[in-house]
Write a protein that binds this DNA or RNA. Structure first.
Lengths: 340, 340
DNA sequence: TTGAAAGCGTTACCAA
DNA sequence: TTGGTAACGCTTTCAA
């Protein structure tokens, strides 16, 4: 079927082993032979068979990436960019799998990557519990968790801090004088939602403000923020004076809901987003938003993974457990409450 | 290092070949033996070595995906979702590569995927010219172009029709009575920009409106639409009465620029977006936008690729060349020009 | 500097 | 129904 080393060897009139050495830039090949081999290889359009190499014992030069795939569209896009930026230049292929937030597909992904003998993995989905990760640890397959932690599993991870982000946002509003702050979240069991809620409550506590369940709006899909927020702002009395949106994308429907209720931002209601996407400064009014280093998280995760793969002293290393601190970018969507 | 078939054979007390047959659900294995083998495999936590299988002649069950990676964040995210949705369930791994809009990285990606003996490829980046594609054709490696066509290369492709989309948007504005329509585009050489420009001009011609170069705003990065559009709307006389934004994402800064100029939408200026992202109905005012079937494009491309890989009659097939028609969703951001 | 041969893990063929 | 053996394409060791 495809051109093999034997074909190249035959054409260049030398043995297979010499051909291999010539193509792999070994020193112990005469220039004359090397030139002949290279020419033959080019002529035949030869490409080394990667599977054969790996079977022979070489590193697979392949990494696995398991995505959760139910985050916001931009989240995945931004994170994977950080990852790819380092993969190809370093000669690594990346096999991307999606769990679609399901344990079954996630296990299938692990299975696939295991069969492919990947050199390492980046994991953004841990729905199936710790077993898969324990297997990786036991078999010394390097991996880095992205935006996830698993209780009871000691390993490398890089996370952005949604808890702290929500805390910063809430504190900012509290400092401005807001006391009734609507908090828009996703599915209660989703780790980023759990983290946000904790940050929100931490800020409230710090300011001695009592937590009210009615001020938390959970939506099965955080993107559908229009109706939940519209209803909440219509019904809750006294009306919240500020909103913590799940992220910048969901802020757009939130702004629309407020506009449809005839509420002015920030005069009547303050709004804070999260992720500080590139469009945040261009919303009307420019959105106060918490910047999370998502691209950085992807890039750093990949960097750590590559280090672990190349440096062969896993024992001498501690775990790299990195929490990327968010920053609050204050713009014009937040102000003291009107009534104050 | 890792557990092999020999280890399983040894533990279950049968030969390697019988072990292989037992694990591969062959019929000619006694139930007693099969049970013993399965138990041993489980006990040892055996996973088949995919590279060995492929070397032996099996299909690699791996697909390659080459992304351009300079499109809008959402474009890649939406398209790849359509792709992944079919990959894992069908047992295919996807190796994702990025060209970053560069010919060199694109060639490197081709090289990588070739070495990995992928069963097929989905390609959204053709910066390096037709040579790579010709190689695939010559070697009967199935591939499908996504959102790209290459002059002189006959092959399968699925594209969304940005030309038609821009045409529909422009026609809508022309029908409303607009004659001075600002057209926001990206790098002149980028295929989607070329297509959009052609659609714009086609609509103008059809309405007998002369094309004016000053009404076309090229930006190196289409996302930075604020200043180019602000300046254009400030300087061009008479002022355009409508804007064709590059896509929905760039619409956000466009709306801001108009707002900062004190221009009202749609009274003073009409705006049309493209892609009809989920947030389009929630912009203020709700955005008239051209819906492009990007998710469908990814999914369909994958479907065609899988068909080509499984059905082994490439000759009897014609090329599948699919152009997904856009539709215009009219909302409140467009109206007849104020002056009419 | 070159070549022969072994072996990576698997499957398939052929014999038993 | 089972087992031995060869072969996939490559790299590496050892000998020449």
């Amino acid at each position: 079927m495809s051109v093999t080393l034997r074909d190249v060897a035959r054409l260049s009139g030398v043995s297979v082993s010499t051909t291999s050495r010539a193509l792999n830039d070994r020193l112990d090949v005469s220039e004359a032979v090397r030139a002949r081999v290279l020419k033959a290889a080019q002529e035949l359009n030869y490409t080394v068979n990667h599977q054969a190499r790996v079977l022979k014992g070489a590193a697979s030069k392949t990494l696995g990436l398991i995505l959760y795939n139910t985050e916001s569209l931009t989240f995945n896009a931004v994170m994977t960019r950080g990852i790819y930026d380092l993969a190809t230049p370093n000669g690594y292929s990346v096999i991307v799998c999606n769990s679609n937030a399901g344990a079954e597909m996630e296990l299938q992904a692990h299975q696939m990557l295991r069969q492919n003998r990947v050199d390492g993995m980046l994991i953004n989905s841990v729905e199936s519990g710790p077993a898969s990760l324990e297997y990786l640890l036991d078999n010394q397959i390097p991996f880095v968790l992205l935006n996830r932690r698993v209780p009871g599993i000691e390993c490398d991870y890089v996370v952005v801090d949604y808890q702290q982000g929500e805390y910063l946002a809430a504190r900012h509003l509290l400092e401005l004088g807001h006391r009734r702050i609507l908090c828009q979240l996703g599915i209660p069991s989703h780790p980023p939602t759990i983290a946000r809620l904790a940050g929100y409550r931490r800020a409230l506590e710090e300011f001695g403000v009592e937590f009210a369940q009615e001020l938390v709006v959970h939506a099965s899909n955080a993107a559908n923020s229009y109706h939940p927020v519209l209803n909440a702002m219509r019904q809750i009395q006294p009306r919240p004076t500020a909103i913590l949106a799940y992220n910048d994308e969901t802020t757009i429907p939130v702004l629309k809901a407020l506009s449809d209720l005839g509420l002015h931002i920030p005069k009547d209601v303050s709004v804070v987003g999260q992720n500080d996407l590139s469009f945040a400064p261009f919303l009307i009014p420019p959105l106060t938003s918490v910047a999370q280093s998502i691209h950085e998280m992807g890039r750093l995760g990949m960097e750590i993974l590559l280090q672990k793969i190349t440096h062969q002293h896993p024992e001498s290393w501690g775990w790299q457990q990195i929490v990327l601190a968010p920053t609050l970018n204050i713009r014009q969507s937040t102000a003291p409450p009107h009534s104050v």
